[in-house]
Computed example of a mutant assay.
Amino acid sequence: MTMGKGCMTASKYFLFFFNLIFFLFGAVIVGFGFWILLDNQTFIVALKNSTDVKLACYILIGVGAFPILISFFGCLGAIYEVRSLLSLYFSVILLILITQFAAGALIYFQKDVVNEQISKVITKVLDKYSGNSSITEQAWDFIQTNMECCGWIDRTDWSGNMVIVNSSQLLFPCSCQNISLISGNFSDSGFCEAKTPDWPVYDVGCAASVERWLLTNIGVVLGICLGVTLLELLGMILSICLCRNVHMEDYTKVPKY
């Protein structure tokens, strides 16, 4: 079954605009990867010293650059009706879709391993916390204060902190303190002195707070994932329809520079 000229034209431009969206999507991913690497303001800083996190950023940039390149070929194949480019485009989008499902399944079934690796990274950060208000320490204070949590798993993550271990006083991280258990002025950084060995801090760890945030916003996360998947499927359908209705390669349409 072949499409009429009007349908062909409409499909070409639909595919072109789809690839424009795909290009922007890739650009956002690349920008996010660079933002994590260059960010010195937010809680992301707390994880940046990890080699694994830096590697993940480079992978993220690479993954984002890939759609940018593919969308270029998709636009070229659609506008100039180059069948080989449309076939290549369809194959690559299919591969990306399969990879996304495989990566999602891997993360889901290996979530305990991922959580363990994050816990190790954060434990090293907490052990070296000195209260000198470095960028990394400010980021971690920001997390604990705003998420009302203490440590990654729980307060015992602070048990290896060198300042607390070597101090003759009963110190605890100020950003952990439960404001409902204290009165008067309080600090949200550095160390505070406890009156008893039972720290007046939050019982919940930040891992639980992050998980709770994800569950609260699960609809948004799933909506974004579903939207991206539908866009990819639309691109595949349009490209294969165009490919089947382009009967001859005409490379003379492609501009020469």
Rank of each mutant, 00 (worst) to 15 (best):
S133F: 08
F142D: 06
L94G: 13
L106W: 15
Q138G: 08
I93Y: 05
K111I: 13
Q117E: 12
G104L: 12
Q110F: 06
Y89I: 05
L95D: 04
L88K: 00
G131C: 08
I93G: 02
A105F: 11
I118A: 10
C149W: 02
S84T: 03
E137A: 00
Q110R: 10
K124H: 08
N115G: 11
Q110M: 08
L106M: 13
I143R: 04
E148Q: 14
S133D: 11
L86Y: 01
A139F: 12
D141V: 05
S91I: 05
Q117Y: 03
I96G: 04
S133A: 06
Y129M: 12
I122G: 01
I143A: 10
S84P: 04
V92D: 06
L106I: 15
I122W: 04
K128C: 13
L126G: 12
K124E: 15
I96P: 05
S130T: 14
A139Y: 07
I118R: 00
T145P: 15
L106R: 03
F90Y: 11
K128E: 15
S130M: 08
A103S: 09
K128S: 15
I122T: 06
A139N: 02
V121G: 05
T99Q: 06
E148G: 09
S87D: 14
F109E: 07
V121D: 13
F142I: 05
K124W: 09
L126D: 08
V113F: 02
V113K: 05
I96H: 01
I143E: 08
K120Q: 13
L126W: 09
I93Q: 04
Q100H: 06
N132S: 12
T145W: 03
S133R: 03
I118Y: 00
L95E: 04
Q110I: 08
T136E: 13
S134R: 01
G104D: 07
E116Q: 13
K124A: 15
D141T: 02
L94F: 12
T145L: 10
E148W: 00
M147A: 10
V121I: 14
S119G: 10
L97Y: 01
C149G: 07
L94P: 03
V114A: 09
L85S: 03
F109S: 14
C149E: 04
G104K: 11
G131N: 03
M147Q: 07
V113N: 11
W140C: 05
S134H: 00
D127E: 13
I118C: 02
S119H: 10
F101H: 02
A102Q: 02
L86E: 01
E148N: 10
S119K: 09
Q117R: 14
I98M: 07
T99H: 00
K120G: 08
T136P: 01
V121K: 03
K128F: 13
L85R: 09
I98Y: 04
L94A: 15
K124N: 14
T136I: 13
V121Q: 09
L106V: 15
